[in-house]
Write a protein that binds this DNA or RNA. Structure first.
Length: 515
RNA sequence: CGGGGCGUGGCGCAGUUCGGUAGCGCGCCUGCUUUGGGAGCAGGAGGUCCCCGGUUCGAAUCCGGGCGCCCCGACCA
């Protein structure tokens, strides 16, 4: 999906806007609106997605295959997301640090499963300063292999534990196929790495962070995930246990939006990370790692956006309220701008507000631009409003279709923050309902399973025998995979005694087609 | 790596069959008039037609070779 310039790189993306003309011009029948419309979500979800990303000016393409440019509006969303999460990490005792981009190849090889999992998708630097390097340097696909040798030196005694470190960084994974935000060769993320004295503490950390991810996705992103444990063969390379947040997108596919890993003592053994206990013994530490990436931005897009473009939950909207002044004469212009700036001052510090006073665009053009960028509320102020001492507030998203509301000027400063909160709540409720409406519990009939996956899609809860071969067969036949063994909050009251293969079920799992 | 497709102003495309002044829409720039849902008129800028070689009076177009990208599949946060 990503292309390079000079070649048809931005091609498929721009095909998201409909161009009906031909060279001879005989097909110029479509109106401007039709011509500029996105491909509808219902028609081609992935084309729609690319169109939303482009219209919202979230990301662009780069000369390097599979890499994207995060544009200012997209990056602003990432920054909001980042600062909210960072605050949660700090509240729970984590500290940020930064480790090198380059990992000596030999380091990566120290943990057998880890190297096996990541080696196929690494980028390797073989030359530096015009000379061949003695040892190739791997561009980090994740940082365990460089962090543990270093943290090993930081840890001497039980008094140094727990060690709770996080880093915000870029990583590179050489993927075959890429899509903006969802899968790119290089992406931004945070990776937490912690060391603990006991297995229980490490497990508690893994679950703590999973809970933080979940509540952030619900409370900030309005993207409610199902959480649970990954199947044995689906774990992070080198982990004892992997937990994941699986969110349902508007096409009913699953997006793995965050993972936390209990690494047991695997990395401690591989990198010789030991501490001295109170009793004087030397023990390996128990460690965890966990991360979320810019993929979350893609999840945000696929959770809420519509055929007009991006829809952002207010908490993650770089601009929460955009004010569009309307005027004809200079006199009106002065009056309107005065009223608008009054409103701006009243909301300053409480709401991220922007006044769009450009006079090179018509109001209508501004509406489309800001709707495409997902601004939650637009406030229109024109001569008619001045006369009535009111402003018009227009919500980007509503459940009941009532988008436009007149607010008396005196109440606007109080009502607008409330409206933002209401919208945040309604987005979450809508997403939760959509997830539940597209979840199918207690499925035992494989034919029904296949019909759901081939048709509407969704999360299918079944019994499961635990065999990898069983998942492989289902995957080959339906393209659905086991997302997680659900956590308690998401489990059915009871689950079928038989697996989709007909064998005896040992536990419940959630299936879906996934990104 | 297998199967399909594409490479022409910033973007999307026509033109290639059958060689003859490189075009259309969008976007961009300037001016005037506009401004409550993508403004109108007038003027304007912008192209080594992916690269190399060949055929020809003449190549975007024909021939040979190369490169790149996209889609479907295998791999994946």
């Amino acid at each position: 999906m990503l292309r390079s310039p000079g070649s048809p790189m931005t091609g498929p993306v721009n095909r998201q806007t409909r161009v009906s003309t031909t060279g001879s011009g005989e097909l110029q029948e479509e109106s401007m609106a039709e011509e500029k419309a996105l491909i509808p979500r219902s028609e081609d979800f992935s084309a729609w997605y690319n169109g939303v990303v482009q219209r919202g000016e979230l990301a662009g393409y780069s000369p390097v295959r599979g890499c994207m440019v995060i544009r200012p509006h997209g990056y602003a969303i990432w920054e909001l997301l980042q600062s909210a999460l960072d605050a949660r990490f700090k509240e729970t005792g984590h500290q940020n640090a930064y480790f090198p981009l380059f990992i000596p190849e030999s380091f990566l090889k120290k943990e057998a499963e880890h190297v096996e999992g990541f080696a196929p998708e690494t980028a390797v630097v073989t030359h530096g300063g015009g000379k061949k390097l003695e040892e190739p340097l791997v561009v980090r696909p994740t940082s365990e292999a460089i962090i543990w040798p270093i943290m090993a030196d930081w840890i001497q005694s039980y008094r140094d534990l727990p060690l709770l470190i996080n880093q915000w960084a870029n990583v590179v994974r050489w993927e075959m196929r890429t899509r903006p935000f969802l899968r790119t060769l290089e992406f931004l993320w945070q990776e937490g790495h912690t060391a603990h004295a006991t297995e229980e503490e490490a497990e508690a950390e893994t679950l703590l962070i999973l809970g933080i991810y979940r509540s952030f996705m619900e409370g900030w992103m309005a993207m409610p995930p199902v959480t649970g444990v990954k199947a044995e063969w689906d774990k992070f390379a080198g982990a004892v246990r992997t937990y994941a947040c699986e969110a349902m997108m508007q096409d009913n596919w699953a997006l793995q939006a965050g993972t936390t890993h209990n690494l047991g003592q695997n990395f401690a053994r591989a990198f010789d990370v030991k501490y001295q206990t109170e009793a004087g013994a030397h023990e390996y530490v128990w460690s965890t790692s966990w991360g979320v990436s810019t993929r979350l931005v893609g999840g945000l897009v696929m959770s809420h956006s519509d055929d007009v473009g991006l829809v952002l939950p207010p908490k993650l909207a770089p601009i929460q309220v955009v004010v569009v002044p309307i005027w004809s004469s200079d006199e009106q212009r002065a009056q309107v701008l005065e009223a608008v700036h009054r409103l701006e001052q009243r909301l300053a510090g409480r709401v991220r507000i922007k006044v769009d006073d450009r006079d090179t665009l018509n109001p209508g053009a501004k509406y489309y631009e800001w709707e495409g960028k997902g601004v939650p509320i637009r406030v229109e102020v024109g001569p008619k409003d001045i006369a009535k001492q009111q402003v018009m507030a227009v919500r980007r998203f509503t459940r009941d279709g009532r988008r436009k509301i007149a607010l008396p000027e005196g109440e606007a400063a109080a009502r607008l923050p409330e409206m933002l909160e209401e919208m945040q709540g309604e987005l979450l409720e809508t997403a939760v309902r959509r997830r539940e409406e597209n979840s199918y519990r207690g499925i035992t009939d494989y034919e029904e399973f296949k019909r759901i996956i081939a048709g509407p899609g969704g999360f299918i809860y079944t019994g499961y025998c635990g065999a990898e071969s069983c998942e492989t067969r289902v995957k080959d036949e339906t393209k659905a995979t086991i997302r997680v063994i659900p956590d308690e909050d998401f489990r059915s009251d009871s689950f079928p005694a038989t697996c989709v293969c007909g064998g005896k079920a040992s536990h419940e799992v959630v299936w879906a087609r996934a990104y």
